[in-house]
Write a protein that binds this DNA or RNA. Structure first.
Lengths: 133, 133
DNA sequence: GTTACATTTGCAACAATGTTGCATTTGTAA
DNA sequence: TTACAAATGCAACATTGTTGCAAATGTAAC
């Protein structure tokens, strides 16, 4: 699946910035920060273009954003197999600081106070990844 | 339990800013943003003092910080009954935008990839709270 | 291949959030 | 009351993200 094909599938124009970001995210096994996506060519695009492109890709559902408890934001390609009602979970390794999307379906046994209705759950697991263990 | 007693328990000096923040957080049923804590007296303290005081209270374990997926940061008083290994879960109402600490012990059935070790889990449940339902 | 036109991009300027260094003030233990 | 570490205010800076507008670009139709 080429970057161009993915963009066409989502009815998005095949622009340089979109192709670049998508390519970097596809190459990576982990979720990347804005800074990390840019590392190979830091000034290839204006910061504004970068933010707008990330938002376009996110709104279209090509990628998704992950906000960690340390306030850093990361992005990863969305895999089509995920359903809206699935739990959106990520693993944050506190040694190498990498973030992984957790593919396995996690089930939660939540006790909410009366009257509270659950829509979506986002979960961040902190710990040590296989490589750092 | 007065604000002064709480601060003494944690071996913290009883300063105006600490007392103010702690008081506002104790009065609230929900987690508050920096802005919300300040609403009654917006310019009572310098922004720097505010940030430093929040950090002091957080480091001491009096309060805790919650970062939502929309990148906003909120603070709430920590209840001593919580243990480190407990899941830190919060409810974010998408109607009134309030954030509640979830007191009930939630158990999670996580399937992590091999070699991954779980330390702490932070979970944000999005949905509709009892008042908005 | 050209053309036309909406969309995307770059630039400038701004806004929100958070940090650092340093001088002054304040809380508290002695 | 005093002494001193700790907390505060101020100025300046850093990072992250946004808005308006003019110029450049992608693509569908010709």
């Amino acid at each position: 699946m080429t970057v161009e094909n993915i963009l066409r599938d989502y009815h998005l124009k095949s622009t340089t910035c979109r192709k670049f970001i998508l390519n970097e995210l596809l190459r990576s096994q982990t979720a990347l920060t804005e800074h990390e996506i840019k590392t190979s060519f830091p000034d290839l695009f204006d910061r504004v273009t970068f933010y707008r492109t990330l938002k376009t890709l996110e709104d279209a559902g090509v990628i998704h954003k992950i906000v960690l408890q340390d306030n850093t934001t990361r992005y990863a390609v969305s895999r089509k197999s995920f359903h809206e009602e699935d739990i959106h979970s990520h693993f944050h390794c506190c040694v190498c600081n990498e973030v992984f999307c957790i593919q396995s379906k996690s089930r939660i046994n939540m006790e909410l106070p009366q009257g509270f209705v659950q829509h979506r759950v986002s979960m961040i697991v902190e710990g040590v990844c296989a490589a750092c263990n």
